[in-house]
Design a binder for these strands. Sequence first.
DNA 1: GTTATGACTGCGA
DNA 2: TTCGCAGCCATAA
Length: 119
Amino acid sequence: MSNDNFFHRVYEVTMLIPPGRVTSYGAIARYLGSPQAARMVGWALNSSGSCTHWVPAHRVVNRNGLLTGKVHFPGRETMKELLESEGVKVEDDAVVDFEKLFWDPVRELDFDQNPPKPF
DNA sequence: GTTATGACTGCGA
DNA sequence: TTCGCAGCCATAA
């Protein structure tokens, strides 16, 4: 959209995550076309501070629903607090009902842009 | 210019 | 079952 930068893509997708929902690095990477580039997603979020827009990085967790990136937040409980403040229950650094709250950009965005064909 | 690393994921032994 | 390795792309040094 704005730029072809991989980082910016991550920012946009991450910012599209509805409140109270979470997604995984792999889901975003997969939406970008490189499921195995999930590392880059985390790296992008790490640089999210360089982005002029606020990026809800706390809504992005690993495939297991663990808040692996919480260590990069100002506070140890910052990520948890943010998620809980949005209605997401977090227990032991893991998102409760992760698969329920899971928000897949490929499923939500691509689905809307590309209506499913009558299979 | 090259080299190393990173908030991950999937598969093999 | 758990443990280990390879792949991916971009940034930083």
